[in-house]
């Protein structure tokens, strides 16, 4: 499917009013939690590193709304967004970032490994490319068990140059697995422009043909467009027609990680993309669709209040008990390697 094809699909799968409000709310959830994470870093309440999805919210939000509750998702170390949109609590996410007992993994994973198995969020993977074959495996399991579940795998443009990407794509295509690979192309692999290190113009879409897949490019800052493409790919997977590879064009508002101010990016480029910030863009669309300002303001106030409450709850949560470091290596709960 070309970009034109994607617009066509967007018309086919136009979200209804309630879905649109859900999409807006999920984007806002991510935006405000990520901003809060940034602030908490500045206050030194979050240690380690962190990779924010500011500017890229539309992709995770669209899939979060489009996916079935029992679908599986896999994401990268830039994974706060993808974990939240599956339904993981804000306090669980912020608590994990802050290393508190209330964290999703009680402080054992940290920012780069958010996991909420009860929501089907089966991990954030910090080794680039590792989770693509793992997502294929979850899809294989769904196919084997005949559950019609789909595995969705989010990754960055940099991942398209690592071996695991190609192994997973071929494997998923050959076995016709119900998996949707979603490349969030934010134009930079860490600090380096993706175009300078990639042989093709569209790092994911131009590789699709090698695996007999459609080339799909979508405007990753247009949540309706991503939603439409997501619905199509999920339906295709559930129908047993195999995997999809989607390239969503987007932009990181901040640098690669906490340590990176992103100075290597030209100012006009940043300005052009800031004008295409997915949140104000979508808000404008909702207003133009006659959704009352007050209804949007109510959502915004509600999310803001939730983020504040989650921040307070996470701050008030204790650090995990030290004994926790010695648990859950094995399924028996312990870490013994000898008798």
């Amino acid at each position: 499917m070309s970009q034109t094809g994607a617009s066509q699909a967007a018309q086919d799968c136009e979200p209804d009013r309630a879905t649109r409000l859900q999409l807006y709310r999920k984007m806002l959830d991510v935006r405000l939690v990520e901003k809060r994470a940034y602030d908490l870093f500045m206050q030194n309440l979050i240690k380690g590193t962190s990779h924010l999805a500011l500017g890229q919210e539309a992709i995770a939000a669209a899939f979060g709304v489009a996916m079935r509750k029992d679908d599986y998702s896999f994401c990268t170390y830039r994974g706060h967004a993808h974990t939240l949109v599956r339904g993981a609590s804000m306090v669980g996410v912020l608590g994990e970032l802050m290393g508190r007992e209330c964290g999703l993994m009680a402080g054992k994973g940290g920012s780069m490994h958010l996991t909420s198995a009860e929501h089907g969020a089966l991990g954030s993977y910090a080794i680039v490319g590792a989770h693509l074959p793992i997502a294929a495996g979850a899809a294989w399991s769904a196919q084997y068990r005949g559950t019609q579940q789909v595995a969705v795998c989010f990754f960055g443009d940099g991942t398209t140059n690592i071996g695991a990407f190609h192994e997973a794509l071929n494997f998923a295509a050959v076995w016709k697995l119900p998996v949707v690979f979603v490349c969030e192309n934010n134009l930079y692999m860490e600090y380096t422009p993706i175009g300078t290190v990639t042989a093709v113009q569209h790092p994911a879409a131009d590789r699709a043909a090698a695996y007999a897949l459609e080339s799909i490019i979508v405007d990753g800052n247009d949540v309706d467009a991503v939603y439409a493409v997501a619905m199509r790919a999920l339906a295709r997977a559930r129908a047993g027609e195999g995997p999809s590879l989607i390239e969503a064009k987007t932009y990181r508002h901040s640098g690669h990680s906490r340590a990176d101010p992103g100075k290597y990016r030209p100012t006009p480029e940043i300005e052009a993309w800031m004008k295409r910030d997915p949140l104000p863009m979508y808000r404008q669309r909702l207003v133009s669709l006659s959704i009352p300002e007050a209804e949007l303001a109510a959502i915004e106030n509600d999310v803001r209040a939730q983020v504040d409450a989650a921040t307070e709850a996470a701050r008030n949560s204790r650090p995990p008990p030290v004994e926790l470091a010695f648990t859950q290596l094995w399924a028996d709960g312990g870490f013994a390697w000898r008798n």
Binding site: Y72, L122, A130, H131, L132, P133, I134, A135, A136, G137, A138, A139, W140, S141, A142, Y144, R145, A151, G163, A164, E167, A168, N170, F171, V174, W175
Partner: peptide, 28 residues
């Protein structure tokens, strides 16, 4: 062939697939 499967020469795919399957209810 549903339970005993030949794979490509792709060891990351083999073990990744086994891992994803193990996490979701199979015992590969």
């Amino acid at each position: 062939p549903k339970r005993v499967r030949d794979t490509p020469i792709a060891e990351q795919a083999i073990l990744g697939a086994a891992m994803g399957a193990a996490m979701t209810g199979l015992r590969p």
